[in-house]
């Protein structure tokens, strides 16, 4: 499979990148690791006329500690995240999540920014980003802004990103007690259901991916949480559950409850 023709520019600064995005608009696509974009382009499902490669922007592939937060540069690979001592010590749920993505080779190239921008409804990060109440830093020609996790995911392959915005980093609060549980789709190894649970004192925050066309915070579970795993029965309350040949909506809803229970345990 060979993509349609396109131009390619590798930028060295975020300003250069946003200028180009501004100039080319819809015709441009941001290339980071390329592990969502290039397969789609090979199948000619996506035919941008220019790729703006941001992988060389200095500082965007760093993981830093800043007060109570861990800041993960958008260009950090899954491999980098899962093997970072800082992440493992302060935000282990993210390391856990990254380790379930794809395979060795995919984790060596795929990036957190790319995955979030692509917003596959079965991707793993969204559950954890939601459960952690992470904040997504984005930049455009008009400046930078921060999008709350809950506002970010808006539908299948749809996010709150404006067309001219680029994700630069994700800011996570430090998390002591977090747990990501995934039920793999047996062919793609994406999540049929992925559940991230972050416990904080008496409360709990639950992010779920793979179940609905948009990853969501399972507020009904959070509300019903009493320290036991019983609240898992509310995993899909009010949710329109997806269906495919691996998991119809009945089974997927059941799995969501099972995985929430596991993640709460």
């Amino acid at each position: 499979m060979i993509p349609a023709k396109f131009d390619y520019i590798k930028v060295s600064s975020i300003n250069e990148a946003v200028d180009l995005v501004d100039k080319h608009g819809f015709d441009a696509k941001i290339l980071a690791g390329g592990h969502s974009l290039i397969p789609a382009m090979k199948l000619r499902l996506n035919t941008p006329s220019i790729l703006i490669d941001i992988s060389g922007i200095e500082g965007m592939n760093e993981i830093k500690e800043s007060g109570d937060e861990i800041i993960v540069g958008a260009n950090c690979t899954h491999k980098q995240i899962m093997s970072s001592d800082l992440v493992k010590n302060q935000l282990n749920i993210l390391a856990q999540t990254a380790a379930t993505i794809g395979d060795v080779q995919v984790r060596n190239r795929g990036t957190i920014g790319g995955s979030l921008a692509h917003s596959d409804p079965s991707a793993d990060y969204p559950a954890t980003v939601l459960a952690c109440d992470a904040k997504i830093e984005v930049t455009s020609k008009n400046g930078s802004r921060t999008i709350d996790a809950e506002d970010f995911f808006q539908g299948i392959f749809t996010t709150a990103l404006e067309d001219d915005e680029i994700i630069t980093a994700v800011r996570f609060p430090k998390v002591k007690d977090g747990n990501y549980q995934k039920f793999y789709q047996s062919a793609s190894r994406f999540a049929v259901v992925g559940v991230a649970v972050v416990k904080d004192g008496n409360g709990v925050k639950v992010g779920i991916t793979g179940v609905a066309d948009t990853p969501y915070r399972a507020k009904a579970v959070e509300k019903a949480y009493d320290g036991s795993t019983d609240a898992a029965t509310h995993a899909v309350d009010g949710v329109d559950v997806m269906s495919d040949h691996f998991a119809d909506s009945e089974y997927r809803a059941h799995l969501a409850k099972v995985m929430v229970k596991k993640a709460l345990a």
């Binding site: 390619y8 390329g34 592990h35 290039i38 090979k42 490669d53 060596n108 190239r109």
Partner: peptide, 11 residues
């Protein structure tokens, strides 16, 4: 290790 089918030569 990476999958060279999912990388452009220019990358």
């Amino acid at each position: 290790a990476v999958k060279s089918c999912t990388l452009l030569a220019v990358q």
